[in-house]
């Protein structure tokens, strides 16, 4: 907030590929900066060969990604990212808009497969199994690695059917009563049940934006995935609902692994154990959440979390 110039210039640069401007500034790296850069266009570049600072890799990871490159047509959206997601941890992914958080998240359950122009390189594994291997079934993978999308996308069907669909196709409920229970439970955990309990047969698309977001969370957890990828699950929620979702995340991490993309630093600080900072398709820094927010080691991370841009 203290630097309107940086915000202005960022908004004008948003969405464009701004990589190749500062050949002179390319060496601005982890060492103590002589001055605080004010303009992302001058100081955003990290160089093609870069190294992620911190601890991207962990022991006994639930999911791991190595040397990931993602291209949309000719445009590279992710450059050489390696990252592990630990068992039963919540990892937050932060970074300016358009830096590739969603893109990276979607590689983890192969959602990018359905975008024809998208090409993914790298090695991915879930519990040591190759995700992109020829033997891997995407249906099973997506059942194990669930996703809450950035834009709420309920099915144009009833609220009940929205939640029941996943369990039904996977055969998780054996009778109507069990299904009712799964639906109610999922809606309760997404803190939506009280609001919709009398209108379960109404279309899910008729809910408000925030309610739709919670419906999509309920839909994702209804199939009990091992890993849940959440892409800004609280972007349309009020503080009360946000707090409930954060409680849910806390509760879920006992049994599940969660990767959450968020634009709210406070949220990242509240819910996650580790935080990964992305910048223009590169993974700049990963570390304990506390460390990232109190002692960021990379200048770009520091600029971001102190609100100088992004």
């Amino acid at each position: 907030m203290d630097s309107p110039k940086a915000l202005n210039s960022l908004s004008s640069a948003a969405g464009e590929n701004v990589m190749d401007t500062g050949s002179t500034q390319e060496t601005v790296a982890s060492e103590a900066a002589p001055r605080i850069p004010l303009d992302i266009r001058d100081h955003g570049s990290v160089g093609d060969a870069y190294e992620t600072i911190g601890t991207p890799l962990v022991e006994n990871a639930k999911m791991s990604a190595r040397k990931v490159n993602v291209y949309y047509g000719d445009k590279q959206a992710i450059t050489d990212v390696s990252l592990d997601i630990g068992r039963n941890e919540v990892i937050a992914m932060i970074g300016p808009s358009g830096c590739g958080k969603s893109t990276f998240l979607r590689t983890l359950n192969r959602m990018n497969d359905i975008i024809p122009i998208c090409r993914v390189e790298g090695e991915f594994s879930l519990d040591g199994e190759d995700i992109y291997g020829s033997g891997q079934d995407t249906v099973l993978l997506r059942a194990r690695v669930g996703m809450v999308f950035q834009k709420p996308n309920p099915f144009p069907k009833s609220i009940y059917e929205n939640v029941a669909y996943g369990p039904r196709i996977h055969g998780l409920a054996h009778n109507r009563a069990e299904m009712d229970e799964i639906v109610e439970n999922s809606l309760r955990r997404a803190s939506l049940f009280e609001e919709v309990k009398d209108s379960l047969d109404k279309p899910g698309t008729g809910l408000s934006g925030g309610q739709q977001q919670r419906l999509c969370i309920a839909r994702a957890i209804a199939v009990s995935p091992e890993v849940i990828l959440m892409d800004e699950p609280c972007s349309a929620l009020d503080p009360i609902a946000t707090a409930r979702i954060e409680e849910l995340i806390d509760e879920l991490k006992e049994n599940y692994t969660i990767a959450i993309v968020t634009h709210s630093m406070q949220q990242a600080a509240r819910v996650s154990q580790r935080t990964a900072y992305f910048h223009l398709g590169k993974l700049i820094e990963v570390g304990e959440t506390k460390q990232i927010f109190t002692m960021p080691r990379h200048e770009l991370t520091e600029n971001y979390i102190t609100g100088r841009f992004g």
């Binding site: 359950n109 959602m111 359905i114 995407t138 249906v139 099973l140 997506r142 059942a143 669930g146 996703m147 999308f149 834009k151 996308n153 309920p154 099915f155 144009p156 669909y165 996943g166 196709i169 996977h170 999509c216 839909r219 994702a220 209804a222 199939v223």
Partner: peptide
């Protein structure tokens, strides 16, 4: 396309 994504996302 978001409907397709939603369905594929729950493992359809």
């Amino acid at each position: 396309p978001s409907i397709r994504e939603a369905a594929l996302g729950v493992g359809a």
